[in-house]
Each structure stands twice: as structure tokens, then as C-alpha cells.
Amino acid sequence: MKYNYVEKAVQITRREFIGLAGVAAAALWTGAYAVTDLVEDRNKYIKMRMAGLYKDDEKQAVRQSHNNKSLMQMYGKLAGKPMSPLAEELFHTQYVNRMIS
């Protein structure tokens, strides 16, 4: 539909401009601060986790599951061998794809 009237242009006052800029700056600042904080926290946890894993690894006498006597004993007595039907039933879980395509 063709129109012949429009709304008058909005004149932003100085007070409103400061309000708008203030809200935008606060949102951006909070967002930027939160992101740097998150990245720092994330890196901190990753580094701590890595250090913990290396420490655990160094302490271990047996570092491969196929050399783990108690595990192999368990397979021998209970589940036959790795990937046996009973092992599949007891130890394997259902996979659900949670990727967002």
C-alpha cells in the first residue's frame, strides 16, 4: 500500500544519548570482562587438570590397560575377553549425538 504520511524523525536528546551509550558501554564492558574472565578460568582449570593427570601418570606402575593385571584378571574371570557379549552388555553405553549441525 502506498503511503503519504510518516512518523516524524526522532531527535535524540543529549541525556538520552548518554543513557543509550551508557547501557551499550556497560553491556559491552560486562561482556568483554566476562569473556576474559571465562577464558582465564578455563585455562586455569585446563592447566590444573593437565598437571594432575601427569602427576597421576608418573605415580602409576602400570600405565596401559592391557598390562593391568587386575583388569585382565577381571576379564578372565568375569567377562571372558574385551568386547565379549557380556563385556558389551555390562560396560558399553548408548551413544547420543549432541552436535549442533
Binding site: 500500500m1 502506498k2 503519504n4 504520511y5
Partner: peptide, 8 residues
């Protein structure tokens, strides 16, 4: 018949 653009 006047028409106004209410929403841009």
C-alpha cells in the same frame, strides 16, 4: 484514503 507508514 490517507495512509501512514506506522512501522518501518
Amino acid at each position: 484514503q490517507d495512509v501512514v507508514l506506522k512501522h518501518t
